[in-house]
Design a protein around this nucleic acid. Structure first.
Length: 975
RNA sequence: GGGCCCGUGGCUCAGACUGGUAAGAGCGCCCGGCUGAUAACCGGGAGGUCGGGGGUUCAAGUCCCCCCGGGCCCA
């Protein structure tokens, strides 16, 4: 028996336990095993914490609603969760827990020990996060997740890398990259863009003496003095105007557009332009490096010091228009340098300290060398001006160390030439919303760069690349078996350091083949998930059948993350995008619209949500929100959802109260237009829900369902049904009971998509019959009966609602309470309303309490109150006569008797009573006139007017009431 | 500098892809009602130049252009 009061706390945990105990999920899976396939791929969350961010819960709940939908449609759903287990965040956390500050401490501790610690951390967090997701009724295959740290997964990665190598796209090259001097590794562009800080740096203007010139200098500007020792050239814009300016007895060369700014900055008021020319005329102009006397490197490259042209990288927005170029410390400088055949020295080691190539600065940490370099420049008269600047500067997203750009040898996957193809792939995908793909993704692809795949760290997929230490020959290994064949050994684990120990003799020269020490970029790990989660191609777990997957969904940050990464790998290895539909969702923000994070202290713990509102309330709250916009969290929102769900709950409670002990069978013939309307609305709702789910408009589906409960059932149908279910005509009761029962029962599997715990509780407590499946999760979604949908009926009911509302309006104006029946209302302006009145007179009666509603011309005479609605107007006769007052009084009495019955705990329709009433003349008259109605409504065998308490049997329950200002005594005697 | 998204009553949000009924809901506020779903529920009202301007159209919150404000991404 369903009980009163929507109270998720009472049942949610119990239901979850029941599912676990009875292995409900496993049973549903096996029941659907032969159904058509729906393939979902989980974007693997990063297990860096043991508590999920509320946004991750939102993400998982959205996924769950889609999975539940297809499963309830009879599909065999691929619903494996994933975990993205490798990478720097886990390493950094492990380092912190061990108190390490650099790589050396890790190596001293032992890579094997360190990697084991990382693994432990991952497993611990995965376990905890899994419990959290299960706790929100997320139905995935939790016992069987894919994890990027598994050997089978790593082996699949190797297979992919080997294939890419064979296609000629994998190679090593030396380029400047963003480098974290603490973590001592390269960072990808993506990682760099994660974190910027405002840093204060020197802003200096430096004079480079023109070779052979007489006190003539090229004026450059930089905020990274430490890159000056690696200066090779100066870039100018070919088409901008440059000038020679006389300052004192010196001549400076800079861009015209920067002149005023620079002089003002340097506090120089006396200067004179003596010559002007386009930048291209400067090309080839040679200069001397001001620090060449102290930097051995500079003496080596002195013949390269000259002006080069670049229209793409020289701006007139900052600096002097003459750009100091150090190809070893800047991507742009490097590109221009390549064009001119310039060297690209990068005299900085992996810890960000200068090498001996730069003489006296050796071993200094680059940022700390700035002051000394500036001093040396000043001593040599090369410093034109020194200031400071606060600018956004990239820092390591994990350890917050300012990054440097440094040339290193890295492994790349060349993809830039695939741009056009990738653009085409994107068009093949169904993006929700469409602009996510059409615009955002394409914009991102426009900036496509080659993929730096190597990282100089420990916890990750080891690059399966072995290089001969003698002849430099490269071999890429695609499987464990291949490794074993080459080396005769099989590592106990495919991680570092175990694979590092595997070596073999070079076939060509007899040297030793050693693995490059790098691991892969973690975006490679997750990018291969669509096939590596199957262990493809070494384990046959049905990969080919599910490629490409039907559906993925993640936040908009994953445009350049996972969506991109998957596409890149999909195209490299299989020539197409590995997914068919993508739902891009928003971020979960706090009440003020800021990102939610533990460090900001605005993080809402899942436990608190469960404690205050419960799991289903959270689920439905997030599911009613447009997915692709950011969601601003608020407790008020949860409160609203709680109210909506409690109406759903109450509708079910209402039904079970009235339908108890009734024989419910099939609904063979539906006569009443209100019931035909109900079935129409039911089927329209199903249709809307299904269509919305299939285009991933999750909020439309959820709202359509809730609106059906709130608008159609609660506000309308139930109110009429209350009367009908107590009809004197058995046939009427039967029809209404069956219609209501069927609709509510068939809606349960739909409700279970969004609020599975609540749906299960209702199912178990009152709708599950002998022989029914043991869980609501096993029910199939009802099919849409198009033939029962009637646009006409639905439109008519909308009109009825409007008329009712207009009558309510008129009552309000005339100040006549609803309990008083009114004689007549005239509807003006709607042609077919007579037919509507005929069909829906019960609704009109219950909702408006007007005896006669007709269609016609505006009535003449006194006593009419008018109200407008969209298609016409209503004239309500609001004069109240004796007769109406008496009838209203009868309703007052009934209401009070009912209240007393309730107080006595009597069961409706079952326990009978006798009623005694003492009051004035009007009361007596009301009882006389409406005795039968009173008796029927209150299950009374006797309704009697008495003149004093003496006439009332002694064991009666009596109460004094104030009815419209009159004192009335009522006694109820239980029989 | 480029790209994308957002801007709708006091607050939180639907509606925009596919132009068309007097622009909706919930919360809050004011007034009233209902009463065997009831620690609920319902009706009425006040409150919106749909950020601003221009354009297309018989018709624009919706399509196009420009601007302003906020956010995200890229440079």
């Amino acid at each position: 028996m369903l009980y009163r009061g929507f109270n998720p706390k009472k049942y949610e945990k119990e239901i979850l336990d029941m599912w676990e105990r009875e292995k409900v999920y496993e049973k549903v899976r096996s029941e659907r095993a032969n159904g058509p396939k729906f393939n979902f791929l989980d974007g693997p969350p990063y297990p860096s914490s043991d508590t999920p961010h509320p946004g991750t819960l939102w993400n998982k709940v959205m996924k769950d609603s889609v999975l539940r939908y297809w499963r309830s449609k009879g599909y065999n759903v691929l619903d494996r969760p994933g975990w993205d287990t490798h990478g720097l965040p886990i390493e950094v956390m492990t380092e912190k827990s061990l108190g390490f500050r650099n790589k050396k401490e890790i190596e001293d501790y032992g890579i094997a020990n360190f990697v084991r610690k990382c693994m432990e951390l991952v497993h611990r967090n995965v376990k905890s996060l899994t419990e959290h997701f299960k706790n929100f009724a997320v139905s995935m295959d939790w016992d069987n997740p894919y994890m990027t740290l598994e050997d089978s997964y790593i082996e699949s990665a190797w297979w992919g890398l080997k294939k890419i190598w064979e296609s000629g796209r994998l190679d090593r090259s030396e380029r400047p990259v963003h480098w974290c001097p603490r973590c001592e590794t390269v960072l990808s562009d993506y990682e760099v863009s994660q974190e910027y800080r405002d840093l204060m740096d020197p802003s200096i203007f430096v004079k480079f003496p023109v070779r052979g010139g007489e006190k003539e200098y090229i004026l450059i500007w930089t905020t990274t003095p430490w890159t000056l020792p690696a200066n090779v050239a100066v870039m100018v814009h070919p088409d901008e105007e440059y000038v020679k300016v006389k300052v004192g007895d010196e001549v400076l060369i800079l861009a015209r557009k920067r002149l005023d700014y620079v002089m003002k900055e340097a506090g120089v008021e006396d200067y004179e332009v003596i010559e002007s020319f386009p930048g291209r005329e400067l090309e080839g102009l040679q200069y001397n490096h001001p620090l060449e006397d102290v930097i051995p490197l500079q003496r080596k490259i002195r013949e390269h010091h000259k002006v080069v042209l670049s229209e793409e990288f020289v701006t007139m927005e900052e600096g002097t228009g003459c750009v100091h170029s150090a190809p070893g410390h800047g991507m742009e400088d490097f590109l221009v340098g390549e064009r001119y055949g310039l060297p690209s020295p990068s005299p900085v080691n992996s810890q960000g300290r200068f090498t001996e190539e730069v003489g006296k600065y050796k071993d200094l940490y680059v940022r700390e060398a700035n002051d000394l370099i500036i001093e040396d420049l000043a001593e040599r008269g090369a410093l034109f001006h020194k200031g400071t600047i606060v600018h956004r500067y990239p820092v390591c997203w994990r350890c917050k160390t300012p990054l440097i750009i440094r040339k290193t040898s890295q492994w790349y996957i060349r993809v830039v030439d695939l741009k056009e193809k990738l653009m085409k792939d994107v068009e093949q995908v169904n993006w929700v919303p469409s602009w996510a793909g059409e615009r955002r993704f394409k914009d991102w692809l426009n900036n496509l760069r080659d993929w730096i795949i190597s990282r100089q760290r420990y916890w990750g997929i080891p690059l399966p690349i072995w290089v001969c230490d003698k002849c430099g020959r490269v071999e890429v290994i695609g499987s464990v078996r291949e490794l074993e064949e080459k080396s005769g050994r099989r590592p106990e684990n495919l991680h570092r350091p175990w694979v590092d120990e595997i070596t073999w003799k070079c076939e060509k020269c007899g040297g030793t083949m050693r693995r490059v020490p790098d691991i892969t970029d973690v975006w490679f790990d997750s990018g291969i998930s669509f096939y590596a989660s199957f262990g493809y191609p070494y384990r046959d777990e049905g990969f080919e059948e599910v490629f490409p997957v039907d559906f993925i969904t993640e936040g908009h940050d994953q445009i350049r993350g996972w969506f991109f990464s998957l596409l890149r790998v999909g195209d490299l290895l299989f020539g197409r995008a590995p997914y068919k539909s993508v739902l891009m969702h928003g971020f979960f923000l706090d009440e003020r619209g800021r990102e939610m994070s533990k460090s900001l202290g605005n993080f809402v713990p899942p436990e608190e949500i469960v404690e205050r509102f419960g799991r289903d309330v959270f689920r439905v709250t997030v599911l009613t929100k447009v997915p692709w916009q950011d969601l601003r969290f608020s407790w008020d929102r949860l409160k609203e959802t709680q109210k909506r769900l409690s109406i759903v709950w109450n509708v079910y409670v209402f039904a079970t109260t009235y339908l108890r002990d009734m024989e419910l069978g099939v609904l063979d013939e539906v006569r009443d237009p209100v019931n035909r309307w109900l079935l129409s609305r039911f089927n329209s709702t199903l249709k809307k829900v299904y269509e919305s789910m299939e285009r991933y408009y999750l909020h439309d589906a959820t709202n359509a369902l809730l609106d059906f409960f709130v608008e159609d059932l609660s506000r309308l149908y139930v109110r009429v049904a209350r009367k009908k279910l107590r009809s004197k005509d058995e046939g009427v009761i039967k029809e209404w009971a069956n219609a209501l029962y069927m609709v509510l029962r068939d809606m349960l599997p739909v409700l279970a998509i969004y609020a599975p715990l609540t749906a299960e509780e209702i199912y178990q407590k009152s709708f599950r019959q002998e022989g029914d499946p043991e869980s609501v999760n096993m029910l199939l979604l009802p099919e849409v009966r198009e033939d029962l949908i009637s646009k006409e009926l639905e439109d008519e009911m909308d009109l009825v609602k409007e008329v009712v509302s207009a009558i309510g309006n008129a009552r309000s104006k005339a100040k006549v309470r609803k309990r008083i029946p009114l004689k007549k209302a005239v509807v003006v302006g709607v042609d077919n309303f007579s037919q509507v009145v005929g069909r829906f007179k019960d609704v009109l009666q219950v909702e408006s309490n007007v005896k006669e509603i007709v269609v016609g011309e505006p009535p003449q005479g006194e006593g009419w109150t008018k109200a407008d609605f969209s298609r016409g107007e209503v004239f309500l006769y609001t004069e109240v006569g004796e007769e109406e007052l008496i009838e209203g009084l009868a309703r007052e009495l009934i209401r009070r008797i009912q209240e007393m019955r309730k107080e006595l705990g009597l069961t409706i329709g079952l326990e009978r009573i006798e009623v005694y009433i003492q009051g004035g003349e009007a009361v007596a008259k009301a009882v006389e006139s409406y005795r039968e109605d009173i008796a029927w409504d209150s299950d009374a065998d006797l309704v009697k007017v008495v003149s004093s308490e003496e006439e009332v049997p002694s064991e009666s329950f009596g109460k004094e009431w104030d009815v419209n200002g009159e004192r009335v005594y009522i006694w109820v005697r239980r029989k």
